[in-house]
Amino acid sequence: MDGHPYGYNLPISEKTKAVPWEEKVRIVEEVKSDFRFKEYIFGCLNCGVCTASCPSNRFFDYSPREIVQRFLEEDVEVLYDMMHEYIWACSQCFTCWIRCPFVNNPGGLVAIMREVAVRNAFEATKDLLKPYGRVLLKVMTTGNQLSADMLQPDFFPDWGPKMADNMENLRAKRLAIPFDVGKSVKTAWEVSLETAIEMYTIWRETGIFEMLEKLDPNLYNVIMDIVEENEERYEELYEEEE
């Protein structure tokens, strides 16, 4: 029987079955060794209030109760399998957290699992995050996650015809805002170069660039080109000041 006897009703994938047991244990232990883990999981009554109020549960085969239960039962096989696609259904709304009588935080557990999945460059993660590349490019290079020029109507036909009107004369519309908000179309606001340089230091020191390199080498190269160009610009400006 492929399904789990205690409720996880998805078959364990062949890929997961083929992975050596020690590797699956290593991955799950990496999740459990995160300092947040002990703050996110306590006991579980199996009451299911988290799943009953979970938005993702209404449309996906996803249950926050399962996340908590599998950790409490130390079900390495299922946890490892969940870390490929299952966890990416979570909406990160944390309704589960506020509802749980034990103050468990299944959404927080999912955040750790996702982080470990990205750090270990799981294939499913690479595929799932491909369409998300534009956000990663923007945030890693400018410090802003979103800008007006990312909202082209071609990407959002389901948002209706008003979107196309919005993009007409976009730059002039932004300049016509009588406050310094959204005046740039390439960033949400004009992030100063020195601030962006500080952020690159944070990415370097915390291993985020390395994560990116494993996740998407092409995107990583594009990002590093921009980062290095900005660092050169900063040095030139700094030298001028000297």
Binding site: Q92, V135, L136, V139, Q145, E190, V191, S192, T195, I208
Partner: peptide, 22 residues
């Protein structure tokens, strides 16, 4: 002022591509 970045938490909750130290 312009000497600020986004919190980068949307990216974290969306892609997992960060960590608590960052």
């Amino acid at each position: 002022e312009p000497h600020q970045t986004s919190c980068t938490a949307w990216n974290y909750h969306g892609s997992g591509t960060s960590n608590p130290v960052a």
